[in-house]
Simulated scan of single mutants.
Amino acid sequence: MSSLLTRGLPSAGLYAGPMAWLVSTQANYALAAWSCSYQFPVIPLLAAVLAAVSLAGGVSSWRAYRQPLPADTTTVPAPDGSQVATLDGPEGGRPHRMIAAIGVLVALLFAVVIAVHGVAGLVFTGCER
């Protein structure tokens, strides 16, 4: 488990960002009446926590992206028949770096969307009809 924290998980940003946004959207609708009743801005607080969850997934993807490619001597056949492509390169069938880069960008995008929802929670009280 600690190796996943240090090495990162390439697809963590792909899952953490959208799931945090899903929870944020559903909680915003569910907590609007509660926020109006108790006059407590729970939506911006929840948005801050869920934006941090999305960014944590992005950090995990970033760590996976920054990992150096291991010196692997295993090769696969290239299109011309030679044995030059390693399994860790994109041409070797394991595009971890590309998935990690997309995970970072997706996590950032969803963190911004969640933050915008949180700012809207500061402007609107939930009592508007």
Rank of each mutant, 00 (worst) to 15 (best):
M1P: 13
S3R: 13
L4F: 05
T6V: 10
T6N: 13
G8A: 03
L9F: 14
P10I: 11
P10A: 15
P10R: 13
S11T: 08
A12F: 02
A12M: 06
G13D: 01
L14K: 12
L14N: 10
L14W: 09
Y15K: 04
A16L: 13
A16M: 11
G17P: 01
P18T: 03
P18R: 03
M19E: 08
M19K: 08
M19Q: 11
W21K: 05
L22P: 05
V23A: 15
S24D: 11
S24E: 13
Q26M: 15
Q26N: 12
Q26W: 11
N28V: 09
Y29R: 14
Y29T: 08
A30T: 04
A33N: 06
W34I: 13
W34R: 14
S35W: 08
S35F: 03
C36H: 05
C36P: 09
C36F: 05
S37W: 09
S37R: 15
S37K: 14
Y38D: 07
Y38R: 12
F40M: 10
P41S: 09
I43T: 13
L46M: 14
L46D: 07
A48G: 15
A52W: 02
S54A: 13
L55W: 08
L55K: 01
L55S: 04
A56I: 05
G57I: 04
S61T: 00
W62I: 02
A64M: 12
Y65N: 08
P68E: 09
L69V: 11
A71I: 03
A71L: 02
D72M: 05
D72C: 14
T74W: 11
T74K: 08
T75Q: 10
V76Q: 10
P77I: 07
P77K: 07
P77A: 14
A78N: 14
D80S: 04
D80A: 01
G81F: 00
S82P: 04
S82E: 11
S82C: 10
Q83T: 01
V84P: 01
V84K: 03
A85H: 09
A85N: 06
T86L: 02
L87C: 02
L87T: 10
L87A: 05
D88Y: 11
D88A: 06
G89W: 10
P90W: 03
P90G: 01
G92S: 04
G93P: 02
R94D: 02
P95S: 00
R97I: 00
M98F: 14
M98P: 02
I102D: 03
G103H: 09
G103S: 07
V104E: 04
L105N: 04
V106P: 02
V106C: 03
V106S: 09
V106T: 12
L108K: 01
F110G: 03
F110V: 07
F110I: 00
A111I: 07
I114D: 04
A115F: 13
A115I: 06
V116P: 00
V119A: 05
V119L: 12
A120H: 14
A120L: 10
A120F: 06
G121V: 07
G121W: 04
G121E: 00
G121S: 00
L122A: 04
V123P: 02
F124V: 05
T125C: 03
G126R: 02
E128T: 05
